[in-house]
Nucleic acid binder design. Sequence first.
DNA 1: GTCTATAAAGGGATAGAC
DNA 2: GTCTATCCCTTTATAGAC
Lengths: 204, 204
Amino acid sequence: MINQKDNIETEEKVLEAARDIFQKKGFFGARMDEIANKAGVNKALLHYYFRSKEKLFDKIFQEALGEFIHKVVGVLNGDLPLDVKIYRTVDMYSNMLSHNKDLPLFVLSTLQENPDLMIRMIKSTQGEFLPNLSRQLQDENLAGNITKISTHEFFINLVSLTIFPFLVQPVMMGAFNLEEEDFKQMINERRRKVPKMIIEILRP
Amino acid sequence: MINQKDNIETEEKVLEAARDIFQKKGFFGARMDEIANKAGVNKALLHYYFRSKEKLFDKIFQEALGEFIHKVVGVLNGDLPLDVKIYRTVDMYSNMLSHNKDLPLFVLSTLQENPDLMIRMIKSTQGEFLPNLSRQLQDENLAGNITKISTHEFFINLVSLTIFPFLVQPVMMGAFNLEEEDFKQMINERRRKVPKMIIEILRP
DNA sequence: GTCTATAAAGGGATAGAC
DNA sequence: GTCTATCCCTTTATAGAC
C-alpha cells in the first residue's frame, strides 16, 4: 500500500523512457534493456508492467497518434474564422514539434508499416473526418471569399508546409549549412509566413 | 570465367532485393534471410558479396540519397527559367515517388538517426549547395519579378508541397476515406497545382 | 560462386528470491 | 514491486564442402 505511489511513478518513468527510445529508434531499433536503463529500473519490470515489447510500443504509439490527431481536430473542426484556424494550426504544430522532434517521423514510419492503425483510430471518431471544416470551406467558397478546394487538399497543403520542415531538418542543416539556431529562426518565421501562403493560395 | 556474367546478375539480384526490404523495413527491421530468399540465393552469399549487413545497407542508402539529391540538383541548379524549373522539379519527384513509395521515409528516417551521412554526401559536392539557383532567385528579385526569398526557404516550400503528400498517404487514405485511385489522381493534379501555388507565393 | 551446417552473440521473456 | 539469473529463440556471420 505504501508502494502504490511508487508504482505510478515507476510506470510513468518507464513510459517516459519508452517514448524517447521508441520515437528515436522505432520498434525494431529499440532495445528493452535500453529503455529499462534509461528509466533507471530493471528490464524485468518492463514486462511486469506491460507484459511485452509490443504492448508497450502500442501504448506509446496510440498516445502519439492521438495527440497528433486530436489537437488538429480541436482547432480545424471548431467554429473559428478560417484564417484564425490556419494561424492556430501552424502555431500548434510548430510548438508541438519544436519540443518533440522525433514525433512526426515516428508516427509516419509506424503508419507506413501498418496503415490499418490509422483507420482504427479514425473509425473510432465515426463519420466524416473534419465535417465542420468541410462545410466552412464550401460556405466561404459560395460566398466568393475563397477558391473551390476539397478538405483534403486544403489539409494537405497546410500540414505539408508546417510539418515537413521538421522532417528535413537534418537535410536542410547539412545542405544549406544552417546551424540549430538558424533552423529555429526559420521555424519561427514560418508561423507567420505559412498562414500567409495558405491564404494566398486560397484567394478566389 | 564462364560464371562472370552470373556474378554480376547475382549481385544485382541481391541489391534489388535489399533495396526493397531495407526501404520497407529499415535497417533493424530487415532480415538478411528475407533478402536472400527474395533474391533467390543463399544467405551466405550476401556476406560473400557484401561482407556485412551494415555494408550492404550503406550501399543501398548512399544510392537512394544520391538519386534524391542529384536529380533535384540537375533540375534546380541548371539554367532554365525559374518557372520551368519549378514545374520540372514537381514532375520529377512525383514520377520518382509514384514508382517508389518507400523511398522518402527510408531516406529521412536514416538521416534522422545519422545526420552526418547527409553532411558527408553534400561535402563531396564542395561549396554552396545550389549556387545557380541562389543567383537566379536574387536576380529575379532585383528585376522585380519575384519577392525576396532565401534559397532554403524556396527549396523547402517546393519540396514540402511535393514530397509530403507521399509521406502521409496512409494518413490521408484513412482519414478522408480515399481509395488508391483517388490518391493517384490527387498527385497528378498536384503536378499542375503545386507549381501554380509556388509561383503565387513568389509574387512580389 | 554457391551451398549446408554451425558457431557466436543478441535480445525478449520468465522463474524465483527478496 | 523490484531484482538477479537464466532460458531459448532469432539472427548475423563464418567454416568448409562442392
